[in-house]
């Protein structure tokens, strides 16, 4: 029976192919073995599972963890949360702002509820003046304004490179987490199967 290709996909039954039944007049035996080896090394495509992607959004790396790839989940989570915390350390809470930096926030929110919590903390602690006194912001040149009407900003507001780099780091955390959560949707379990554990125990 000549080997047939499966367009990059194979069914588990294909692994039980009996080499003695291969018609070597139609398929050279060397080529047949190579084809079979390629089938066996291919990973079957996992259908996308939205639940794991959603878990990956809730906490970076949780999607891989839940899918059974625990080490990958931890490493991916450390990468994304590392970017997020670096951004907050450099730029302060002000680098996550859903009202003043709306477009940046649209990317940042890919890192999940952590970013939403940071935005809420920004409003609660900085913009309200609870964490630091509010100071009058600069008035555009030539604008006549009553001093009491001048908008006030937190004295903890980030400026220049600190704010730019902090915003960028949290933004990158959001974008990278989208990559990570999409991977979580198709990630296969890397935990050893019960059969493999039993076989190792018998050996």
């Amino acid at each position: 029976m000549p080997l047939r290709t499966h367009q990059g996909k194979w069914k588990p039954a294909a692994l039980h192919c009996d080499l003695s039944r291969i018609d070597t007049t139609q398929v050279p035996i060397e080529g047949a073995c190579q084809t079979l080896a390629r089938f066996m090394s291919d990973t079957p495509q996992q259908p996308f599972r939205p639940l794991f992607a959603l878990l990956g959004w809730v906490l970076p790396g949780l999607g891989q963890w839940s899918a059974g790839a625990r080490k990958r989940g931890i490493l991916a989570g450390v990468g994304v949360i590392g970017l997020f915390l670096s951004g907050l350390l450099v730029g302060g809470l002000d680098c996550v702002d859903s009202t003043e930096d709306r477009l940046w926030f649209a990317g940042q929110v890919g890192a999940g509820p952590l970013v939403i919590a940071a935005d809420m903390a920004n409003s609660y602690y900085l913009k309200s003046g609870r964490a630091a006194p509010l100071i009058a912001s600069a008035v555009p040149y030539g604008t006549a304004m009553n001093p009491e009407d001048v908008p006030k900003i937190s004295s903890f507001k980030g400026l220049a490179h600190s704010n730019e780099f902090g915003t960028l780091l949290v933004f990158l955390a959001g974008l990278m987490n989208i990559v990570v959560l999409l991977d979580a949707g198709i990630r296969q379990s890397e935990a050893p199967s019960r059969r493999a554990v039993d076989a190792r125990g018998q050996a």
Partner: peptide
């Protein structure tokens, strides 16, 4: 976390190292 890191404005370029790593 509450306020920006002091000195980051002078050493901003060094922040590309943790950024690239994470």
């Amino acid at each position: 976390i509450l306020e920006p890191a002091p000195g980051a404005a002078q050493w901003w370029w060094a922040l590309s190292i943790p950024m690239a790593f994470f």
